[in-house]
Design a protein around this nucleic acid. Structure first.
Lengths: 352, 352
DNA sequence: TTGTAGGCGTTATCAT
DNA sequence: ATGATAACGCCTACAA
């Protein structure tokens, strides 16, 4: 940096200010210095910058996996949001550090900050950790969480409007002449609970009895979910539609149904939730609720940056979109317009 | 650190040495200091450490996506290896930084190192970048690549033994009485080329003519692959089996086949490649070649650490495993033992 | 708007 | 085996 200063004919301080876009430096000088830096291949040493400024310009990403509920990092949902997060973080001028949570340490959500590795933390999926997170959330602690919002949470969350998503599925399935439903999922998890509530309320609002919706505990892991749904079917579960709380679960349900000889959608309707790309490729293609992960990533970063600057940040519930495909077409509709259903499905795929 | 030194009754130098497991410090002293540090909640400031020691204790992970070939970060393959990498890196005492490559910058593979953000770089998927990577690979440059090995590469690679994987598929399908094959994939990519070569060679070795294997260019993106396979089928492609070069591609093929009314596996066999968890849940479940991503992650980190220390590192081709499921059962076998096939599929799932 | 000076918390070197 | 000392490269009061 000394060399650069000499070459530019200014002091190190000015170089420093120019390179960090300080408003205290003459715009012309700034550009000149930046040009020169680029030409000389000079880059600020981040370690020195961190040490002196006490900011890391790094955001930590933690993904606590609820192994009890059979959640894997292999769930395609995580990758989908990961790329978007990397982009959003980069655009804000930060780096993204991947940190595995150590849930036995109390106060773990802020570990990377306390360790001086990051200025803030994004936590993907609060699942059953709300209490711990709430405890860690001293006033304006610099972390945000992807997941369902709750009025009693003392930290900002960003997530899809799960209730609305559930309601959309209810509207659609009832319109497809379904009258009895089995909701599949672990309603101990807030996101799942919201999906369930949204679904059931709308079903009731549409004039069906609350008993029309059975709630069956099924876990996120594909294998577990398969076994559980299979068991339900073997036990003679009666329902016009299975409403799964994730796409992976719905895929497991598809296979379970196929194994017991049920034809989808003729004998049974199945829907997912998440909007994974692969849902377009199942046989039959899956109706699902698409989450706007792009907006989600952006909102997470925005909220976190606010918290890092000590400002408050509001929780966000993002709009969702119903993606209708063949897995939920009622027999009546299908008989009239099999081809139409197919092309409708193709079309809706493009909205992505 | 000064406080800690005082509390322990030693100098800062000794504390520093104790906390970095230096052999120059008395083991007793070391333990005492470490205990005390834990009790006092002291943690080394990584920025200061980096600045002074000129090592970041950080490994950068770059995922160049070949958008031409329709590869997304949403490909579940990446998540699968990501978690393992995070573990392997952590166990080695390093942090994992996610960095998006800027392929327009020449020498981009080493950007994070030059920028002082990381000591080494892991690059996931070389695809068509071999030339650029080779250029960046000055002697013992600290980066390693996940992908197919080639004798002319001047950097270490870790990848599955794609040729062996292809050969296993050939063995299996020929045993299932298949005699004509369409290999689906972009053989411009080295991994795909190896899978293809391994497959075709074994087919020929088994006494079939080289013309038994057609090679059809199909891209990695699910939607693209679907359209491409669909077009092939509409065009009247004749083959006993479709051999896809990835699981996502195979799933797209499954759907394409379903749409044109082909029953799998009765009318046509389909196989995948990767060993994604979800392949167990397709309808019918997909035969695939499982890669050992756990070993892969470990090998990547091991090789990279060697390079970081200036030592040479050998490339690795990891053994693969054939996972037989229903999608590749020939009609003959199936007629005799439909139930057996199903339970065999379930069993093989457990070997995971 | 720019320059001066001092220190951020560690570790490497040298001495003991 | 331990201690003293300097320096890593930058940022930020403060002064000009």
């Amino acid at each position: 940096m000394a060399a650069l200063a000499r070459a530019a004919g200014v002091s190190e301080s000015t170089v420093s200010r120019a390179l960090s876009d300080s408003s205290l430096v003459n715009p012309e000088t700034r550009e000149k210095i930046k040009d020169l830096a680029a030409r000389m291949g000079y880059q600020v040493n981040p370690a020195a910058r961190m040490l002196r400024s006490r900011r890391t310009r790094t955001i930590a990403l933690m993904i606590p996996l609820q192994h009890d509920a059979g959640q894997h990092l292999s769930d395609p949902f995580f990758t989908s949001i990961l790329g978007r997060l990397a982009d959003a973080v980069g655009e804000a001028g930060y780096d993204l550090l991947l940190v595995r949570p150590k849930p036995d340490r109390k106060g773990w959500p802020l570990d990377p900050v306390r360790a001086g590795r990051a200025d803030g933390v994004i936590i993907l999926g609060q699942s059953y950790l709300m209490d711990e997170l709430n405890t860690a959330a001293e006033d304006n602690a610099p972390f945000v969480v992807w997941g369902a919002g709750r009025s009693d949470l003392r930290y900002p969350t960003v997530g899809s409007d799960n209730q609305a998503g559930g309601a959309m599925l209810a509207d659609h399935l009832v319109e497809q002449s379904c009258r009895t439903f089995a909701f599949l999922g672990d309603v101990g998890l807030p996101e799942v609970a919201d999906r369930f509530e949204g679904f059931r309320r709308r079903v009731v609002a549409l004039g069906l009895p609350a008993s029309a919706v059975a709630c069956e505990t099924v876990h996120f892991d594909a294998e577990e979910a398969f076994a559980e749904v299979r068991a339900l079917l073997d036990r003679g579960l009666r329902a016009d539609a299975l409403v799964a709380s994730s796409d992976v679960m719905a895929m497991s349900a598809l296979r379970a149904a196929a194994e017991v000889g049920l034809r989808i959608p003729d004998d049974l309707r199945i829907t997912g939730f998440d909007g994974m790309d692969l849902t377009a490729m199942t046989v039959p293609p899956l109706t699902t609720v698409r989450q706007d992960l792009d907006a989600g990533a952006r909102a997470l970063v925005k909220a976190l940056l606010a918290r890092i600057e000590g400002k408050p940040a509001k929780s966000v519930a993002l709009p969702t979109e119903l993606v209708v495909r063949a897995s939920s077409q009622s027999p009546a509709q299908r008989n009239q317009k099999t081809r139409a259903a197919v092309s409708a499905s193709s079309r809706s795929d493009k909205t992505r």
